[in-house]
């Protein structure tokens, strides 16, 4: 299993992702600088969290035009699994590879805490082996994670089973108080129509070893290696 972690100026979860993939998951992992354009040959592409280009203008707005995004688009249409985590999710939205947009958290403040997630679909290469009756625990850390989509877009996401993760309470109920940022319908992660591009605000790479406080993130890496 060959994975790559993209690195933009201002990425800051690239090393965590690299560690999680190479050490925790055992993938052969490489960093890819944002000036590269060819991403062929990888079984997984990770767009990590951070503050690419200082988050200026809008999170992900400038990174989406980086040369490496040409490679990301090409691989997205080839069906290569691509996961955008936090800022990576924001970049995928800005690039139009996923529908919707991010707004400031409703509380305006930066939220960093562990959250509980419900897996809404196992029909993705990232969640295929996840037991949906088990809730996942992962950290979030973002200021703009308030997912917005028009009613039409939400309906399409639902009809096509593209909502992958939702924030929930310890019983698995999606409630206003379990929603850390105001995301519409408590959405924490979505995939594209062809199901190979996943964007999520929570950080699976920060929940990939016991010493970090949890290992639920490894469930995604396990699903990915099982699928290959």
């Amino acid at each position: 299993m060959k994975a790559c972690v993209l690195v933009f100026p201002g990425s800051n979860c690239d090393r965590d992702s690299y560690h999680a993939l190479s050490v925790s998951a055992g993938f052969k992992t490489q960093y890819v600088w944002h000036e590269e354009t060819n991403l062929s040959g990888y079984d997984l592409i990770v767009i990590p969290g951070g503050f690419s280009y200082g988050d200026h203008l809008r999170s992900g707005a400038i990174a989406r035009y980086a040369p490496v995004m040409k490679g990301v688009s090409a691989e997205a249409s080839k069906g290569t699994p691509i996961i955008g985590i936090c800022n990576g999710f924001q970049i995928l939205l800005e690039a139009g590879l996923l529908p919707g947009a991010m707004l400031r958290n409703t509380q305006v403040s930066f939220r960093h805490q562990w959250v509980t997630l419900r897996t809404e679909t196992t029909l993705t290469p990232f969640t295929s082996t996840i037991d949906q009756s088990c809730l996942l625990r992962m950290p979030i850390a973002h200021g703009e994670g308030n997912y917005f989509a028009t009613q039409n877009m939400i309906k399409q996401l639902q009809d096509n089973d593209q909502i992958v993760f939702r924030y929930c309470d310890s019983e698995g109920n999606v409630t206003a108080s379990s929603n850390p940022n105001g995301s519409v319908n408590g959405i924490a992660g979505i995939c594209n129509k062809t199901r190979n591009v996943l964007g999520m605000m929570p950080h699976p790479e920060r929940a990939s070893e016991l010493i970090l406080g949890g290992t639920d993130g490894t469930l995604l890496w396990n699903s990915l290696s099982r699928g290959l």
């Binding site: 707004l103 400031r104 958290n105 409703t106 509380q107 305006v108």
Partner: peptide, 14 residues
């Protein structure tokens, strides 16, 4: 500007 139907947490805080 944010579209009118889009919630504006920053505006509300101000």
């Amino acid at each position: 500007r944010l579209q009118t139907e889009v919630n504006d947490p920053q505006g509300l805080t101000i």
